[in-house]
């Protein structure tokens, strides 16, 4: 394997790791607001790292530029979606979970 291939594998693996963290977060976190943290961020970073790997794989090509654009749109749409969901919950008066609600789990 060349150093570039190591780098690509590293990026994709890191992407998979953060995708995994997002899933664990959705399962473990207690309420909608905290779950939105997991989906909007760990997920974004996971996608971004994987796509970064893809970009390096393409090398200097139009496809790489398109991947970069894809990254940009992920950065814009992911937080917007999380915001839309939590805002809807907030306006419905859904109380966020706090540390007093349940000790630890």
């Amino acid at each position: 394997m060349t150093p570039l291939e190591y780098l690509i594998s590293g990026l994709v693996l890191a992407g998979v790791f953060f995708g995994f963290v997002a899933v664990v977060g959705i399962i473990r976190l207690p309420d909608l607001y905290t779950r939105a943290h997991a989906t909007s961020k760990s997920d974004t970073l996971g996608t971004v790292l994987s796509l970064g790997g893809v970009m390096l794989l393409f090398g200097a090509d139009v496809a790489a530029v398109k991947t970069a654009l894809l990254l940009l749109f992920m950065f814009i749409t992911n937080p917007t979606a999380a915001h839309a969901i939590t805002r809807a919950a907030y306006e419905q008066g859904i109380e966020p979970w706090t540390a007093d609600d349940g000790g630890g789990d």
């Binding site: 607001y33 939105a36 943290h37 909007s40 961020k41 760990s42 974004t44 950065f75 992911n78 937080p79 999380a82 915001h83 939590t86």
Partner: peptide, 8 residues
């Protein structure tokens, strides 16, 4: 929102 731990 992108910076983890905080969400608008």
């Amino acid at each position: 929102t992108l910076t983890p731990g905080t969400l608008t």
